[in-house]
Design a protein around this nucleic acid. Structure first.
Length: 534
RNA sequence: GCGCCUGUAGCUCAGUGGAUAGAGCAUCAGCCUCCGGAGCUGAGGGCCACAGGUUCAAAUCCUGUCAGGCGCACCA
């Protein structure tokens, strides 16, 4: 149909020509039909579908992986929360997305570095230090108010108390001249520990940790700005220094050094991105909260000012998470320090459920996270639905092994026994996994995997309900195991009873093994466990 | 006012320019004698926000309008 215009022929005619050529491949195609206005429907020979099973068996955990990213160096920077408090739900969503993307890009051949950028310079750190100092002084009986826009959370007092105990224990002076600096340093270490512990809940590993403060210490900020100055993208105005971001389509130029001589956040971000670019990555991916979206044109301007195309940098935005409990909004007030932390949520619902739910929506759409739903062990909860499929297969294998039924390999079975629509539907689902994964990686959208897994799990449950895998237990076996089976009722009632031959059992066990492999592979990318039993 | 994101079933959301737009929840009606019912089967439910345009073909691309969210600092 697309060729119709350039070829000056009716789509139907073109379809016939293509179909004619395809007819010389009866070894692959069972049926070729031209359907108006110009569709060509191809029916692939059933035997070919079975190759999918032997492929899965052969490739195992590599099934679905691809090589299109080979040789591409990617830097994925995510979470990067200020070390001024524990991680909250928004960070959790970014963490789940980032972790899944790292796995996804790696299994499509990319060479990925996962990086955490620590915003350990500037105002927020100072506020934390001031807040800790105030609490510290309060503990020692002084009337020191926490700063107006300081950190109110209980963890601040906890940090102050630990600092106090530590100083007492080691006999240090309680009010040194550099008390604020001591608070800052102490809080920094404690917060970073806390963040790492929170990330450990999600089993995330970062390859590199980079520090904003270090960019200042090493003069990387000045150096990066000097390059921009040399390229004529910096100018002085009203006593401040500006970056000419309008040269690259930004709304207005941006200040990099204020009238008072202090650098802005943009200045260190310029240095940081210059640093990342000069480390030789083909692609930078940043995951940011959606409230930072106005910042994107600026950073893309930075990338271009250093002489790279703007597509070198991709920013993925993560939208707000609305926390609900049984449908009702859980209110959070950052001011009063009543933020619900990621840790609290993970401890309540579990890491698997949390991660999976974070990944059931496109990252740029808002997400309702219902705590009650996340805890539910039912079909309402997609993570259990998928994990259950995996555990169910594991259970069949356990029973098979108890009964002494071998788990065969695809070369030992007659796969054409798999003829039912439910079986073919499963096989086709398995075949869709690699292209789905590739599309997901190209679009940087791991949520496609969660949808895929739910679909595959549904196909498995449908198959499982309709068909038997293992043969019915023989009377002799029953006597051995002292199991009572009531007398059969009408065969049409209820679940279908199916006699399965040894050959059919073998073929179905192979099929289930492959389904299990694919579910496990998909869950692994999401960072969700695939339990043997639940 | 400007910019970005989002408007798809009652709700929450998938949907790669192609055929009759899908899933889960909710509602209604069914299904357990043995491999896990944490499951399965079916029904109802849609001017794909609206209006134009491009195209043989639009939920999808373009323009405009309306609605919601977010952002528009010499904060981070």
């Amino acid at each position: 149909m697309n060729l119709s215009a350039s070829e000056h022929r009716a789509p139907r005619e073109i379809a016939e020509i293509i179909a004619g050529r395809l007819r010389s491949h009866p070894d692959i195609l069972e049926k070729i039909e031209v359907v108006p206005p110009g569709f060509i429907n191809l029916t692939i020979k059933r035997e070919l579908w079975f190759k999918v099973l032997s492929q899965i068996e052969g490739e195992g955990e590599r099934y679905g992986s691809a090589t299109f990213g080979q040789g591409k160096l990617v830097l994925l920077e995510y979470v990067s929360a200020n070390p001024t408090g524990p991680l909250h739900m928004g960070h959790g969503r970014g963490a789940a997305l980032g972790g899944a993307l790292v796995n996804l890009l790696r299994c499509t051949g990319h060479d990925v570095t996962a990086e955490y950028y620590i915003n350990d310079a500037g105002r927020q750190m100072k506020l934390l230090a001031d807040s800790v100092e105030a609490r510290y002084r309060q503990l020692l009986g002084q009337a020191a108010p926490v700063p107006e826009d300081g950190y109110q959370g209980a963890y601040v007092e906890e940090i102050a108390r630990e600092l106090l105990e530590s100083r007492r224990a080691s006999g240090q002076e309680l009010f040194p001249a550099n008390l604020n600096e001591a608070c800052r340093a102490w809080a920094y270490v404690k917060m970073l520990e806390a963040i790492k512990a929170d990330l450990a809940l999600f089993n995330l590993h970062f390859d590199t940790w980079s520090s904003e403060a270090l960019l200042f210490e090493t003069k990387a900020v000045e150096q990066a700005l000097a390059i921009l100055k040399f390229r004529d993208y910096l100018f002085e105005q009203e006593g401040a220094q500006w970056f000419r971001s309008t040269a690259f389509g930004d709304d207005k130029d941006r200040v990099v050094r204020k009238q008072d001589g202090e650098f802005t956040y943009l200045a260190s971000d310029i240095a940081y991105h210059h640093d990342k670019l000069s480390r030789g990555y083909d692609r930078l991916i940043n995951i940011w909260g959606a409230d930072h979206h106005g910042y994107i044109p600026r950073m893309q301007a930075v990338v271009q000012a250093f002489g790279y195309t703007k597509d070198r940098l991709t920013v993925l935005l993560v939208q707000i998470v609305n926390l609900l409990r049984g449908g009702a909004r859980v209110t959070m007030s950052k001011r009063a320090g009543e933020l619900i932390t990621l840790r609290e949520v993970v401890e309540e619902v579990g890491a698997d459920a949390a991660k999976f739910i974070f990944l059931t929506r496109r990252s740029d759409s808002q997400l309702d996270f219902d705590l009650e739903l996340a805890k539910q062990k039912s079909a309402d909860n997609p993570v259990y639905y998928v994990q259950y499929a995996h555990a169910r297969i594991a259970s069949v294998f356990r029973v098979a092994s108890e009964r002494g039924i071998p788990i065969p390999s695809t070369t030992e079975v007659h796969l054409p026994y798999l003829v039912s629509p439910e079986e073919l539907n499963l096989i086709k689902g398995l075949a869709e996994y690699p292209p789905m994964l590739e599309a997901s990686a190209r679009a940087l959208e791991p949520h496609r995997i969660t949808y895929y897994l739910q679909d595959l799990a549904a196909r498995l449950h449908t198959f499982y309900y309709k068909h038997r895998v293992l043969p019915p237990v023989l009377d002799a076996e029953l006597e051995d195991r002292e199991i009572q089976i009531p007398v059969a009722v009408e065969p049409d009632q209820g679940r279908k009873r199916e006699d399965v031959s040894a050959g059919v059992t073998a073929a179905r066990l192979c099929l289930l093994g492959c389904v299990q492999t694919v579910i496990r592979n998909g869950l692994a990318i999401l960072g969700v466990s695939a339990p043997e039993r639940m």
